[in-house]
Simulated scan of single mutants.
Amino acid sequence: MANVNLSIQVIPSVPEEKIYPVVDKVIEYIASMGVKYEVGPMETTMEGELDTLLQIVKRAQEICVEEGAARVCSVVKIDYKSEGVTMDEKIYKYR
């Protein structure tokens, strides 16, 4: 399957001072998965096979709960086309 782009924003229901540490754990997990990713101020965008990225999304929810979140709201965006899509093709002219 061709690469897709998937962006995730996790919003864990934790005290305000714990939000960044919980999100940091999710980003550490994404980094450990070997997919191309880029952290932004509102979301993290990944590039890879859809099944792999969806597994990462699932695990991100679990990590938030393991870190103390009573609830997790997440926003997920997927850019898919049959021949594949890359982050570079969308943002190269801005770099």
Rank of each mutant, 00 (worst) to 15 (best):
N3H: 04
N3D: 15
N3R: 06
V4I: 14
N5L: 14
N5V: 12
L6H: 07
I8H: 07
Q9N: 07
Q9F: 01
P12V: 08
S13E: 15
S13F: 13
S13P: 09
P15M: 10
P15I: 01
P15D: 11
E16V: 11
I19K: 02
Y20C: 15
Y20D: 10
P21T: 07
V22G: 01
V23R: 00
D24L: 08
D24W: 05
D24C: 00
K25P: 06
K25S: 13
K25N: 09
I27M: 00
I27Y: 05
Y29R: 06
Y29K: 08
Y29D: 13
Y29S: 03
A31Q: 12
A31E: 11
A31N: 04
S32T: 12
S32H: 02
M33T: 08
V35D: 01
V35S: 06
K36D: 12
K36C: 11
Y37F: 08
V39W: 00
P41M: 09
E43D: 06
E43P: 02
E43T: 10
T44F: 05
T44G: 01
E47I: 04
E47D: 11
G48F: 00
G48A: 11
E49S: 01
E49N: 03
L50T: 06
L50M: 05
L50H: 03
D51Q: 09
D51V: 08
L54P: 06
L54M: 09
Q55M: 15
Q55R: 07
I56S: 07
K58Y: 07
K58P: 08
A60Y: 00
A60R: 02
Q61H: 15
Q61Y: 02
E62D: 14
I63M: 03
I63Q: 00
C64S: 03
V65T: 03
E67C: 06
G68N: 05
G68T: 01
G68E: 02
A69H: 00
A69D: 08
A70Q: 15
A70W: 07
V72D: 02
C73K: 15
S74F: 00
V75S: 14
V75F: 13
V75M: 14
V76S: 06
I78L: 00
I78M: 10
D79I: 13
D79P: 08
D79C: 10
D79N: 11
D79M: 09
Y80R: 12
S82E: 15
E83G: 04
G84M: 06
T86F: 09
D88E: 03
D88N: 10
K90M: 08
K90E: 08
I91T: 12
I91R: 10
Y92G: 12
Y92N: 15
Y92M: 07
K93L: 15
K93H: 10
Y94N: 14
Y94D: 05
Y94K: 14
Y94V: 07
R95N: 14
